[in-house]
């Protein structure tokens, strides 16, 4: 029977696929294993090994205002501020683009889409020079504004696509009752696209949280540095690198974004809307 050989072949093939995937995953997991094991190790070095002694001492050592709390708070202010600004501006901008037809929509959206893929790294030198001239260098607000601006194109694009999914009939009733556009955006459209807003929010936050180059260029005072930049201190000023503490700090710094990602992907399933948002 052809069907039986086919199913036997399928099982065989599934096992082969499993083996292949596990091999790749093992390679991917090695660096991750290093950071987790070293953070718990009394004598951490650079290779993956079972800890010589289990300890929380590394976490204890880095959980001080100087090393952990201030940088994390700075990260939170920068990324929280930037994300809030991004989401509010993107939601407002997406509304007319999604709801009203105008001959300006298409050129605007094309420009936005074009801007989503510009290499932001390339404009950091001129941004620095510009910020020096307008006195925004080394300020939190300047960095927040730039974060928001660099994230906006993608946020507007995503937000508009999510908003297109909310049927306009639901709004028409509110319009006839005399609700303004702003009211119908706040009361009807945004609540209906909760998952979309969550994706845009989490996505912006995660990207800003992990961004190194922007705060590295635009902030100068050590007190204002977010975790992305302050982590380099482990190499700079402290003489020999204490790898256990570096690993512990890396775990603390990475946890928020990992949790946010898990939260959103649990709620929205798998590779969530991102795969859908970028596929051609």
């Amino acid at each position: 029977m052809p069907s039986r050989t086919l199913s036997a072949r399928r099982t065989h093939r599934r096992l082969a696929a499993d083996a292949g995937l596990l091999a790749v995953a093992a390679a991917f997991a090695l660096p991750l294993a290093w950071v987790v094991l070293s953070s718990l190790d009394t004598e951490a070095d650079l290779r993956v090994k079972a800890p010589s002694g289990l300890t929380l001492g590394n976490y204890d050592a880095v959980l001080t205002p100087d090393i952990t709390f201030t940088p994390l708070l700075n990260s939170l202010i920068l990324c929280g501020g930037g994300t809030a600004l991004t989401v509010v501006c993107a939601a407002l901008a997406a509304y007319p683009l999604s709801r009203f037809r105008s001959r300006l929509n298409r050129p605007f959206l094309l420009t936005i889409l074009f801007a989503t893929s510009l290499p932001i790294t390339a404009i950091m030198v001129p941004v620095y020079a510009l910020f020096v001239q307008v006195n925004l260098i080394d300020t939190m607000q300047g960095t927040i504004f730039f974060f928001a601006a660099s994230q906006l194109p993608f946020a507007i694009w995503l937000m508009k696509n999510f908003m297109d999914g909310v049927p306009r009939e639901l709004e028409e009733a509110a319009w006839t009752d005399g609700a303004s556009s702003l009211q119908s955006l706040l009361r009807i459209v945004l609540p209906l696209m909760g998952p979309g807003v969550a994706v845009v929010t989490v996505f912006s936050f995660v990207l800003m949280w992990g961004n190194f180059f922007v705060p590295f260029m635009l902030l100068l005072t050590p007190d204002q540095m977010p975790a992305a930049v302050s982590i380099n201190e482990f190499f700079g000023n402290r003489g020999t690198v204490v790898y256990g503490q570096l690993a512990a700090f890396s775990v603390i710094y990475s946890t928020p974004v990992l949790l946010l990602y898990v939260l959103v992907s649990r709620k929205l399933g798998g590779g969530f809307a991102l795969g859908g948002a970028v596929k051609g």
């Binding site: 509010v88 501006c89 407002l92 007319p96 009203f100 504004f145 507007i156 955006l185």
Partner: peptide, 16 residues
């Protein structure tokens, strides 16, 4: 109708 686009546009023009 274009008014809500303004904040985003200002940010994009000034900082991008």
């Amino acid at each position: 109708r274009a008014l809500p686009v303004t904040p985003a546009l200002v940010l994009l023009v000034l900082f991008l």
